[in-house]
Amino acid sequence: MTTATRFASTDNYAKGGVEIIGDEQPRRYLFSNMFEVADQSTVWERVVVARNLEFTIECVRAEGESPWYVCDHDETALSMQGDIEVHFIKPADSTVLPTKDHPGPVKLTGEPTGQAMGWVKLGHGHMALLPRGAAYQFRATNLGVLLLQSILGDESIERWAGICQH
């Protein structure tokens, strides 16, 4: 038998789906595909593909350089496609951080002033911590797909009817 691991990408994915028995509704399962979502998204949009009350997983079409973001809680980034760098700066101006009652990241105007913290380079299946209080920017040479573990905020975009089976 073949044991090749089947990955997927924006160029090569095959969706499954929800088959209903009786009077169940497919939309209750919020079924989507991250590569289809990325394929249909604008670059750097944070499209909510999973939500559990205030917590989210957001899918991002990564291409070129992203805006700079900063957040008052940890987030994580998982590269599901492509090589993606994440650059970090410790903002010199602490007032750029959102307040504690403002979850999710805020988009900054340009690169913040502050001390460079370093960078990480993510390949396929690699995952990075986006630590609380560190401004970050993604850089992707080619089309990539990111999954962000975050909290619903100003940058989160919910369009369930557009991405889910119903």
């Binding site: 994915y13 789906g17 929800v18 595909n33 997983i57």
Partner: peptide
């Protein structure tokens, strides 16, 4: 009682 079959392939997301 059975309600649904959900088939998930690589990249699929379901609640």
């Amino acid at each position: 009682a059975p309600k649904a079959i959900v088939t998930m392939k690589a990249g699929d997301i379901s609640s």
